[in-house]
Design a protein around this nucleic acid. Structure first.
Lengths: 168, 168
DNA sequence: CAGCCTGATGCAACCGGGTTGCATTAGCGC
DNA sequence: GCGCTAATGCAACCCGGTTGCATCAGGCTG
């Protein structure tokens, strides 16, 4: 799951529907698989594999990564690289989400893709570049951090953000 | 040098000027230091530490990283994270460069910062987000890869780009 | 409902990018 | 030329993530 995910996200309603899709794709539904899904449904924003593995009974990290990989191949999950930390995984309901991340507090803001259509148009017109902000987000400083505390913000004063979940 | 570089890039003319600045800052000018600088002047685009270390006599990677760190602290060098691979380092002449990178061929395109002023304005107006594309670039697919080969391109067919130097 | 095939698990080892500790080397100001 | 101290270069380590492999168990099949 290290390369850019280009498969279409699937629309789906609940865990059961996804488990059915897994079985339909020839996969088995094991306890870790459902726990990973449950964690993704619980999270309110992209979450790291480590965060997902830490859900109650305690999952093996390798298994979490392999489940995320399967789910991503199915179009049910996508991941984003928000800075230096671990990749963050989220359910890929409907169309591709795009992200803004704050380099100071680590906040990840999820956007509907249309919200950046004009930006994409500018980049395409000017450079012929087809920009995507879904796998590698737009970095910068969020409004809170910009004026709020004149610099470093609430969450992670070191600039070494450890984002496990952010805003939806 | 793992965090966002926010110091102002210095304008400078040549290696000698930088060496003088190093000495003025209380640093010593050793052979590895000059070799790193020479490699940066030779490269035509951002280069990885490994690439820099591979210059003829062969430098120790640790030393290369430490020199890059010093140079970055001086405002002479900046680095950009272009995807999953290693960080890429370049001379930071004048103002902050910004970057577009192609996820297919690994090409890194360097832009003058004014080239994205309108994009920054949109993002600031719409989300209050102060975007920077100098440390984490805009990802996507370059025009060559987009139509050219209808997909994967010239350089690194695996999508596992190994960018050591790109376009200036 | 038991059996079997095969996919999934969980552990350990490994990998790439980068950092840290530390003894040794060497800049450079005096 | 001396000596102080920064810089080097090696080894060990860290973190995020992947791979190998023996074991376990999901779920189709009879």
């Amino acid at each position: 799951m290290t390369t850019a995910p280009e498969r279409r996200p699937l629309p789906f309603a609940g865990v059961e529907e996804i488990l059915a899709a897994l079985r339909a794709a020839g996969h088995r539904v094991s306890a870790p698989a459902s726990q990973v899904l449950a964690a993704l449904f619980d999270a309110d924003g992209p979450a790291s594999a480590e965060h997902i593995a830490a859900q109650p009974p305690g999952l093996d990290l390798t298994s979490v990564y392999r489940n995320l990989e399967r789910l991503e191949a199915l179009g049910v999950v996508s991941h984003v690289h928000a800075g230096h930390g671990p990749g963050l995984y989220a359910l890929a309901r409907g169309s591709d989400r795009e992200y803004l991340t704050c380099d100071r507090c680590g906040r990840v803001t999820t956007l509907e893709p249309e919200a950046l259509d004009d930006v994409r148009d500018i980049l395409h017109g000017r450079f012929g570049h087809h920009a995507r902000f879904s796998h590698f987000p737009i970095h910068g400083v969020c409004s809170d951090c910009a004026h709020g505390d004149a610099g470093r913000a609430h969450a992670h004063p070191h600039g070494h953000e450890h984002p496990h979940a952010g805003a939806a």
